[in-house]
């Protein structure tokens, strides 16, 4: 019994400690960010690795998400004779919710894990300690550019996701199901507001990018330097990123669209 309570206490203390370490680590990264202006090549390199490499899956999944939305909404809304509003419903769901959230979750699974594994392996093979030996701060040289690149990439990917998915919905509802083109775009423009919907969606994806980037690099940097430790860290990246994105999405939605 005492053992059980002790293990409970240990776990609790451990998670508090991890949270604290994570925040200190974030401070370190943020201090390293200004120097990235002097070395933009490091960031561009990483944007290529995490952003451009995610582009294919983002575009393909966005197209299919939009097409499925178009198909489902058309069939459901037709029952009420309201298939005209398909454009506005598709665009609002995508711009407000699905674009930022799905992009962030895809990104965590695709680029976040690769960042964690890369940094974790660097730690396991003692490349990071090697850098310290040469008086190079690994947080500034290795972690900060990756963090910056991931943070920048998520909002850009989310924008591409929303745009492609809206085109996918257009393809299905106008191209296949015979809705009128002007009805699709006209309804969309009448109900989607630039400031309330599009800008809030972008703010969401900036927050998600920050969280996903932070979790990915921290899990990598904090991983136990063994092959098992790196694999566990990778799992934690996906789980923690996805859960935080979903929870934050709920909080931000209720703040932004609550009234």
């Amino acid at each position: 019994m005492t053992d059980f309570i002790r293990s409970l206490g240990r776990r609790f203390l451990n998670s508090i400690q991890r949270l604290g370490r994570g925040n200190l680590f974030l401070m370190q990264i943020l201090r390293g960010l200004p120097s990235m202006v002097l070395r933009p090549r490091l960031v561009v390199q990483q944007i290529y690795a995490v952003g451009v490499m995610s582009l294919t899956i983002i575009i393909v999944s966005a197209a299919f998400t939009g097409m499925v939305l178009g198909l489902q909404l058309f069939n459901t809304l037709q029952g009420f004779g309201a298939e005209q509003s398909i454009g506005s419903v598709t665009a609002l769901t995508l711009v407000r919710e699905l674009g930022p959230v799905l992009t962030a979750i895809f990104f965590a699974g695709l680029a976040g894990t690769s960042l964690t594994a890369e940094i974790g392996l660097m730690k396991a093979t003692e490349q990071l300690s090697g850098m310290e030996m040469m008086a190079v701060d690994p947080v500034h040289r290795v972690v900060a550019p990756r963090f910056a690149a991931a943070w920048v990439s998520v909002p850009l990917l989310a924008l591409i996701f929303s745009a492609v998915a809206i085109l996918g919905g257009y393809f299905v509802s106008v191209g296949l199901l015979g809705l009128d083109t002007s009805v699709y775009w006209g309804q969309m423009q009448a109900y989607v507001d630039w400031g309330d919907d599009v800008v809030n969606g972008i703010i969401k994806s900036i927050v998600f990018g920050f969280v996903c980037a932070w979790i990915a690099v921290y899990e990598g940097f904090d991983a136990t330097p063994t092959s098992e430790g790196v694999s566990r860290a990778t799992i934690r990246t996906v789980v923690h990123s996805s859960l935080s994105v979903l929870a934050l999405d709920f909080i931000m939605t209720s703040l932004m669209f609550g009234d």
Binding site: V44, V52, L156, I160, S162
Partner: peptide, 29 residues
């Protein structure tokens, strides 16, 4: 690498432009 990152950023800007002009009512305002 630079070329691809350039294409990536340009695609995102194009998407933003589309969301602004075609999807939302910024053009109607």
């Amino acid at each position: 690498t630079e070329l691809w990152v350039g294409i990536f950023v340009a695609a995102a800007v194009a998407a933003l432009f589309m969301l602004a002009m075609q999807v939302s009512n910024l053009s109607l305002a």
